[in-house]
Design a protein around this nucleic acid. Structure first.
Lengths: 137, 137
DNA sequence: CCTATATCTCCAGAGACTATAGCTTTTGGA
DNA sequence: TCCAAAAGCTATAGTCTCTGGAGATATAGG
């Protein structure tokens, strides 16, 4: 049995966020102690870790809800999981593409040697001048 | 002189968002026409493009505010601008790494033959099990 | 000059939290 | 065993970064 604080420490999800997820129906209301405090079990911990992972990866609460729903029915064929996954895959690919473009720009920007001034700083110029970008955004 | 709509079209920032930035003090309140409509100049356009870039690159409003402040003092050394960009770069690299792992997992699922069930589905397992992750998150 | 489009202000909502206030419960040490 | 500190409770409000709608006014093109 974990308190909400234990759960928080073990998953890295803040206490109010855990309560928020409960309210949103992402995790079910756990048992309570005599004194009305939440008492979680191992599977709650796993579920929350799952959610945390998804969020870290930028999945929306809704996407995670879908995946959780699927994971709750391990006997079903995974066609639905496939569909949901396919939908998210497109998203993820797009995100990666954007981030890579960004990475390139930042790499170029960061390569400055610190010896010059803001006046000729590439960060500032790169942000100010669309013409310096290699890609569309 | 540009109207707010011109500015929006030229920078790709939506009209309400421009007004929001004004409210937040990221851009200063422009002159108004006889009829109280905002009238912008070239330098407003440049500043907004700068902001747009920063946001596209995932910088927080605060980071952008810092960079704008820096860009207003071109005589200063650019170490701070570099630092802001470098910090952000580390973030971006990490996100890319995570998303690539997710992409692989999703690819695997999508390419599945429909013959297995959610029970042995890798997306679900990957999200559920921290042990399958290559990195800390 | 008239109409369609653009703009204005103000306000509400979305999404995902985060914080505060004012309690009650648990826990660890003397 | 007792008690203070830490942790938890509910309820509500606020944050951040926009986004959208209503209803009124301004501007531009034919």
């Amino acid at each position: 049995m974990f308190s909400i604080g234990d759960l928080s420490r073990r998953t890295g999800v803040k206490v109010p966020t855990i309560r928020y997820y409960e309210q949103m129906g992402l995790i079910s209301a756990p048992e309570r102690s005599e004194g009305n405090q939440r008492r979680y079990e191992r599977r709650d911990l796993e579920r929350l870790a799952f959610i945390r992972h998804g969020r870290d990866l930028g999945l929306s609460i809704e996407a995670i809800r879908d995946l959780l729903e699927l994971s709750g029915h391990p006997e079903k064929p995974c066609g639905d999981a496939d569909r949901i996954a396919a939908e998210h895959l497109a998203d993820v690919k797009e995100k990666i593409a954007k981030l890579k473009r960004l990475e390139q720009e930042l790499e170029r920007i960061v390569s400055c040697d610190g010896k010059h001034t803001v006046g000729d700083c590439y960060v500032i110029r790169a942000l100010a001048d669309h013409g310096l970008c290699e890609s569309e955004h």
